[in-house]
Amino acid sequence: MSEVKIVATLTPFPEHIETIRSAARAMVKPTHQEAGCLQYDLHESRAIPDVRDLATQGAVSFMFIERWKSEDDLKKHVAMPYHDDFLAILDGKLENISVQRLTAI
């Protein structure tokens, strides 16, 4: 099987930023311990509505950049109890969620 690359972006409602930041951080350590995890990095980003005005910042998002040994390893990750707990915390607190599979070109 071939490696799987994922980028997951979570944009919380402003009143839930701290809750989502804390929950996202808590995902990193146990995920790194999974046998099939090659990379699981968490980043915080601020939208820049106008590239000509870098000082103006928009919404806060959290991005997971993930690499898995195989599709099966990703499926095991999603089946972990702490992943279910994380999804429960996210419920109703996100303005947007985007999960994308990456393919090199």
Rank of each mutant, 00 (worst) to 15 (best):
V4F: 01
F13V: 10
R21W: 03
R67W: 02
D50F: 06
D73N: 15
V7W: 00
R46N: 14
A88Y: 00
P30S: 04
P49R: 08
I48F: 02
H32E: 03
M63D: 06
Q100S: 13
I20V: 14
H77F: 06
E18S: 08
G58T: 13
R25Y: 02
E15Y: 04
K75L: 15
H32I: 01
T31L: 00
T31I: 05
Y82Q: 07
A47P: 01
P81F: 07
E66F: 07
P12E: 07
L54P: 03
Q39R: 15
I48R: 03
V7Y: 05
T31C: 02
K69Y: 03
L90Q: 10
K93S: 09
T19A: 13
K69L: 09
A88R: 08
A24R: 00
D53W: 05
P30A: 10
L94N: 08
K5I: 09
S2P: 11
D41H: 13
C37F: 05
D84C: 06
T11Y: 03
F86W: 09
E95I: 08
F64K: 03
A59E: 15
V78G: 12
D72F: 11
R52V: 07
K93N: 10
E34M: 08
L90W: 02
F62R: 03
F64E: 02
H32L: 08
F64Y: 12
I97W: 06
S22P: 03
K5A: 12
V51R: 11
T19Q: 11
S98H: 13
E44V: 11
R21S: 11
L87I: 09
L87P: 00
L38K: 11
A59I: 08
E95R: 12
K76T: 15
H43S: 12
T9I: 13
A8I: 04
D84G: 10
D50V: 07
D91L: 10
P81K: 13
I20W: 00
M27G: 02
L74F: 12
F62W: 01
A35F: 06
I105V: 14
A104V: 10
E44I: 07
Y82L: 04
P12L: 06
S22A: 13
F86D: 04
A8P: 01
L54F: 03
A79W: 02
I48S: 08
P14V: 06
R25T: 02
K29M: 01
D84M: 04
T11W: 00
E3L: 15
A55N: 12
E34D: 08
A55Q: 12
Y82F: 11
W68R: 05
L54Y: 02
R25K: 13
G58Q: 12
Q100K: 10
R46D: 14
V99D: 06
Y40T: 09
G36Y: 06
V28D: 00
I97L: 12
